[in-house]
Write a protein that binds this DNA or RNA. Structure first.
Lengths: 202, 202
DNA sequence: AGCGCGTGCTTTACATTGTCAAGCCCCGCG
DNA sequence: CGCGGGGCTTGACAATGTAAAGCACGCGCT
């Protein structure tokens, strides 16, 4: 459950990289302790040694991803700092979806693996923290008078929409809508939905 | 991959029921061929006999769920037929996430299991068919002049939002937002987001 | 009546997985 | 020198997914 070993071993990093690669190919629930070990060039029990269990291993990927997302949302927010208010909301939401598309393995572990999700304070906290940037942005834009609706509701709307699109993207289901939006790539569809959504906010 | 045996065996139904029960308790990727067989009172190889493989078994659950959802959305639409246009959109979207909450196992198999998702025409078709009801509703409401925005975009928005909320609900993550909306149950939060969303449509 | 034969399932077998217990190597500190 | 503890391996076990072969029985056919 919890990590058996502090953190900062050489093999640990190799295992994380191998796991991410595997999860990218097969999805998170296709990752196996032994296959990860094999790819990292270690013995079959190395992962259990570091992560305690399969669940612990995936949890580690989730935590890594949450830190990464937090970072990326921050820099995206800085980059967009001088844009008009609503554009900043678009940029942030889009960045969220792009992150999921770029790091599907991490995203899957972070937000879509309930066995990991439930009853883990550290993880719950990290999730809220990573989303905190978006919430703060909503507050800002509201304070600047660019949007006027209820802050909580607006935040929930953006979260639901972003997670919905990201989930579809991770599962490769966004292409299922191709017939409706022919020629568009996943990100094109995402941007279209997000722009419409943000434009409609009161 | 494909089913080994037509359909309509006595044991097959028992297996499906057992699988749904198991998936409800453990999530879809916690279901195992052998455990399902045990619960259904059959030999450990019965599931492979009927479904060909673990993947095939989950696929069967997905197909069952898609048929179910199709039905429920239809009757929900009939029930709401005399409501004002936007209320009908609310009712349909709400019914969608209520379905996910009531049948998390099915929903998981239907929309959140990429190993099943990819390259399966029958499944893709069934998914679009189940969503077709919502699309038709959008067209109707648009034709009645109750909404005026682009039909495709509106449809995509509603899909993304509904799937986002449903996914959070299935993963038990909606409660993570409790601090923001204290005292609300999952469905309360869902309704709040959906109402805001529909009200904002142009 | 007897004979297949296909549907519906079981039995046996095997490779692979997650997990646990024990052990080995080696660096740093006493 | 020793010895302790990180960092990892080896070995074993129960459980899983999959494949192949086999059994029972009801149906149609002659």
């Amino acid at each position: 459950m919890t990590e058996t070993v502090p953190t900062g071993a050489p093999g640990r990093a190799a295992l994380l990289r191998a796991m991410e690669e595997l999860a990218r190919e097969q999805g998170v629930n296709g990752v196996g302790l032994r296959e990860v070990a094999r790819r990292a060039g270690l013995s079959h029990a190395a992962p259990t040694h570091f992560f305690g269990s399969r669940e612990g291993m995936i949890r580690a990927l989730a935590l890594e991803g949450l830190a990464l997302l937090d970072d990326e949302l921050c820099t995206a927010q800085e980059r967009a700092a001088r844009l008009p208010g609503r554009e900043r909301l678009v940029a942030d939401s889009l960045e969220f979806v792009a992150f999921a598309q770029r790091n599907p393995a991490h995203y899957d572990a972070m937000f879509r693996t309930p066995s990991i999700a439930n009853g883990d304070d550290v993880l719950d906290r990290a999730r809220l923290a990573a989303l905190g940037g978006l919430r703060a942005l909503v507050v800002d834009v509201h304070a600047a008078g660019d949007i006027t609706g209820d802050i909580e509701t607006t935040f929930l709307q953006l979260c639901a929409m972003s997670h919905g699109i990201a989930s579809l993207a991770v599962d490769g289901l966004l292409h299922g809508f191709d017939e409706l939006a022919p020629g568009d790539s996943g990100m094109d569809i995402a941007e279209r939905i997000i722009r419409a959504q943000v434009a409609q906010l009161p």
